[in-house]
Amino acid sequence: MTAKNFIYQIKNLKHAYNGRPILDIADFSVERAGIVGLMGPNGSGKSTLLRFLGFIEKPAEGEIRYNGKIEYPFSNAVKSHVALLPQTPYLMKRSVSKNIAYGLVINKKLSDRRIRERVHEALDMVGLDVKAFAGRQWSELSGGEAQRAALAARLALKPDVLLLDEPTASVDAASIQRIKDASIQARHEWGTTIIIASHDRQWLLDICDQAVHLFNGRIFDSAYENILFGPWYPENNGRWKKKTADLQSIIVSRPPHSSAAAVLDPRRVSLHPLSRPVRTDHHCMTGLISQLTLEKNNNNVLVSVQIGNLYLTACASDSPADSPLLFPGQNIKLSYHPDSVHWI
């Protein structure tokens, strides 16, 4: 794969706010026309990264190449080609159709008729009825409708990149489906590169070509990594532990500090039927299979296991010999070696 196929290339990006590091990304690239999912807890830097990718702001350090060139906010190469849908939609104090037409009016030299057509197409894509919504005022929309109108304003631009910041976080179920469909359609029709930050893990795993995990401003290449959060309490055998909601213990190696987070590779987690004994040097927990996912690139089956309030993912194909028969809703035992976690 040559550099030409990357629409974004990030190198040594560092950004801090009030002395607190927000983002620290050494190397990250996004393929043209790909769909990338960003996962991670709140405050992990997802929104900030999207703002940089959307050229709303400029990072303190490092470079972001767009189509191979370093670009900055307000440069012509990104204006109206890169469109960000923020987490909280904002509609200007004017009608819905004027909101949607805004980007077209200020940047694209289109006739009024073409603008009207584009606005109507965009309304169609997000499932807002043209007759009912085009003439409405900004204040006459529900939260979900406002989010869809805001998405339509981005779609009307037919952008090369569409950045979605938790687009389904606070909207009704019907709107969620419309937003998901419209995003896919954009990629399908115009080859738009889409980057989505979301907590909707299942959606991201379904549609993304690449999913990454963001934690404390750093990117972990696979979205499937398990991240175990502190606080940790020392045991007398040199291990450290934390209780889950159903009072099982998570046992880990010595953390750098008590609130550090650990990464546990799904390949290091093995699954066992409840009846089978587990290696004594492994730590063992029991849980409920919540979901089976086929990883797109390599046909691995990923198994999500719910243990109290914790979800751990195991990779099933790594241990075909003793692999049990798996189905969602099944109780299962999983085990890992405490030393196999690494600290971040």
């Binding site: 959307g54 109206s80 469109a83 960000l84 849908l85 923020p86 904002y90 980007g103 200020i106 981005r154």
Partner: peptide, 8 residues
Amino acid sequence: LTLISLGA
């Protein structure tokens, strides 16, 4: 944020 993201 909205205006810049719409190409203003």
